[in-house]
Amino acid sequence: MKDSMKFLRKEKMLEMIRESDFVLETVDARNSLGTRSIKLEKLAFQLNKQFAILLNKIDIVPAEVVAECIKYFKDKGIIVIPISAEKNIGRGEVVNFLLEIKEKLGKEKIVGMIAGVPKTGKSSVINMLKKKDSANISPLPGKPGYTKSTSIYKISSGIYIYDTPGVFPDARDYIEKTIRSSPPEKLKDPVSIAVELIQKASNISKNALSKIYKIEWSGDPYSFLEALAKKRGWIERKSKEPIIDEAARTIIIDYLKGKLKIYKKCMQNS
């Protein structure tokens, strides 16, 4: 794995979970099941750790999708706390959960870890909990702000939390696994991924793409990529053909940043 992309290896993950009083996992509410780590969850439960999923970015997902995913996880016996680190929603609920663990364990100090698939908002959550911008943030894998090593932060009196490198996505969702495991410029086939993202966005709202990019939606993702490349001036010098790879990377980046409104219901992906 390139130096720009660090993942928490299973051995290190196991060691950190074993030493933790609690484990928090961030998932992206736009695709809750596709951005979770089954391996992380299994280890946390096997070691009998206090565990909760932080359902992040609920502000950019319809309320009914959030409610369905909360029910999905609760039916599985998993504690889930809906939050938006960007909008400072859910901070009190997370802190109260940690305070309850501290009281339950009867300790003056508890230390836990926050982990998750890259770009689900781990560092943003830490900043929300601390009420300070201490953890570096980037919306894109492999960019400055991507967590490459563990760091510990004080959340509240007697509550400390480790920020960790990303954990590998659940392999069931190819798109999420691919775009969260490599920087956009390193993707081998950005076009096929962008085509699927464009199709998903148009299925949710036919006018969404036109509103964002000011390009008329014809119903053909490839034509849309060509139009976007021409609009942005990405043209091959010799052939004068549009560079659709650049347009495709733009679509992927906009999805990761939350600009492109795409979401998947939990029951669609279970």
Rank of each mutant, 00 (worst) to 15 (best):
P62D: 01
A63W: 05
V65E: 10
A67K: 13
C69W: 01
C69I: 06
C69G: 01
K71T: 09
Y72K: 13
Y72I: 11
F73H: 12
D75M: 08
K76P: 05
I79D: 14
I79V: 15
I79H: 12
V80G: 07
I81W: 04
P82S: 08
P82W: 03
P82H: 01
S84D: 10
S84K: 03
S84H: 04
S84F: 08
E86G: 01
K87H: 15
K87R: 15
K87Y: 12
I89V: 15
G90Y: 13
G92V: 06
E93M: 00
V94L: 01
V94Q: 03
V95Y: 11
V95S: 06
F97K: 15
L98T: 10
L98G: 07
L99Y: 12
I101M: 06
I101C: 07
I101N: 09
K102V: 11
E103S: 08
E103V: 11
K104R: 10
L105W: 10
G106Q: 02
I110Y: 02
I110V: 14
V111H: 05
V111Q: 11
A115R: 04
P118C: 09
P118K: 04
K119G: 03
K119F: 05
K119N: 15
K119Y: 06
T120G: 09
G121N: 08
S123D: 11
S123F: 01
S123M: 05
S124G: 07
V125P: 04
N127L: 14
M128D: 12
L129S: 10
K132P: 00
D133P: 08
D133Q: 09
S134Y: 03
S134N: 02
A135Q: 09
N136R: 11
N136P: 11
P139E: 02
L140S: 05
P141M: 02
P141K: 01
P141E: 03
G142N: 06
K143D: 13
P144R: 10
G145E: 06
Y146H: 07
K148P: 01
S149C: 02
S151Y: 08
S151P: 00
I152V: 13
I152E: 14
Y153D: 02
I155E: 08
I155G: 14
S157Q: 07
